[in-house]
Simulated scan of single mutants.
Amino acid sequence: MAFHASLLFALPLLFLLSANGRSLQKNDTSERIELERALSSDNIKVRAVSLATDSYTGKTNYSDVLGLAALCTQYPWLLEDNEDPCLPPRWTWIQCNSDASPRVIELDLSSKILYGELPDFSTMDALQIIDLSQNGLSGLIPSFLGTFPDLQELNLAYNLFTGPVPDSLACNNKLKLSLEGNTGLLLSSSCSTSDTPSPTPNRNTNSGSTGSFRTPATSSRKKSKLPVILGSTISAFVVFWIAVGIFAIFRHKARTAAAVAEASSAPGQSNVPKENIPMEEIPMNARPNNMSP
Rank of each mutant, 00 (worst) to 15 (best):
N172Y: 02
N172T: 08
N173Q: 12
N173I: 03
K174N: 15
L175R: 11
L175Q: 10
K176Y: 09
K176L: 14
K176S: 15
K176M: 14
L177S: 10
L177H: 09
L177Y: 04
L177K: 05
S178A: 14
S178I: 13
L179C: 03
L179P: 06
L179Y: 04
E180Y: 01
E180C: 12
G181N: 02
N182M: 03
N182I: 09
N182P: 06
T183D: 08
T183N: 09
T183I: 09
G184Q: 04
G184I: 00
G184M: 00
L185T: 00
L185F: 00
L185S: 00
L186R: 02
L186G: 02
L187I: 12
L187F: 10
L187M: 10
S188G: 01
S188H: 10
S188T: 08
S188R: 12
S188K: 09
S189A: 12
S189L: 05
S189H: 12
S189F: 02
C191A: 12
C191L: 07
C191T: 14
S192A: 12
S192L: 07
S192R: 09
T193P: 00
T193S: 15
T193Q: 05
T193N: 13
T193Y: 03
S194F: 05
D195L: 12
D195R: 13
T196Q: 07
T196M: 03
T196P: 03
P197E: 14
P197M: 11
S198R: 09
S198W: 03
S198Q: 07
P199C: 03
P199F: 00
P199N: 06
T200F: 03
P201A: 06
P201L: 05
P201D: 01
N202Q: 06
R203V: 06
R203E: 06
N204P: 01
N204L: 02
N204Q: 01
N204I: 03
T205Y: 01
T205N: 06
T205S: 11
T205Q: 09
T205L: 08
T205H: 01
N206L: 12
N206P: 04
N206T: 13
S207N: 09
G208A: 13
G208P: 08
